[in-house]
Amino acid sequence: MVLAVTGPASRWRRALLAWRRSPVSFRAGAALLLVHAIVAATGPFWAPYGLSQMGTGAPLAGMSWSHPFGVDQLGRDIFSRVVHGGHIVLLLSLSGTFLGLVVGAVIGLLSGYVRGWIDEALQRVLEALISIPFLVLALIAIAAAGPELSGNPLLVILVVALVYAPRIARIARAAALDIVTRDFVTVARLRGESAWSVMRRELLPNASGVLLVEFALRAGYAPVLIGSLGFLGFGMRPPTPEWGLMISENRALIIVSPITVLGPGLTLASLVVGLNLFTEGLARILGRTVRRADK
């Protein structure tokens, strides 16, 4: 019922109105994400210690006001390292997921529009990829890339994209199958538009709601995937303050000083919870139900 009144003032008022009507989970998630984003953006400037500064306190000193997350074996302040690592985790997860979204959406939408044997063949390949568990697929890809690329952030991004793209492609294809039955797609076909143009102009705008939810959902799990890779030693290399890697480094000390593992672990958890709440709220706003991510 909203008519074409789109002055800048009314746009702000509408945004405010939408915020007031949004579900609580959406607001809580958005608040958590905002905190993470601010810390990621500004953290390196106000973190109490440098990212690999040693001798900040007695090693394994435990929790204190000056070292909220304790001090590791080398005397590095864990809290400072978590703050320094924020932007790495966020950037890796978001860009990896985004790349997966772009590739997956293009493959899925085109496949759903073109149909025929191309579609069938693509679907079998995607199904094969999906049948391999997340982590195993990621490890295979890293092993195949060879040791010289190991620890490269680009590799991590590509691996996240590789894991997500087939799953997103399935969703995009399902959305496309519904959209192509509508007459405006037939109109475009009769006009002689190329498949690429139909996808970009007709399919993508109408699948954007589904894809947005899918992106947020996948992005919520990406930090866990990256963390797992780091924990297993296949992700980022020390001394990068990537949270999964930090959990791995300090796991031997979990009995002596549990906070050194709990600190990065809880931070990671709060990011994942924030992203999930945000997604759930977003999906509710867009009127869609969320299928829980397949782990």
Binding site: R182, D183, F184, T186, V187, L190, G192, P205, N206, S208
Partner: peptide, 18 residues
């Protein structure tokens, strides 16, 4: 293609809502 144009029954479906 240009000289033959088709108008559909239901404009709800034949116009891209986005």
């Amino acid at each position: 293609r240009r000289r033959i144009q088709y108008i559909f029954q239901n404009p709800d479906a034949s116009l891209n809502p986005r």
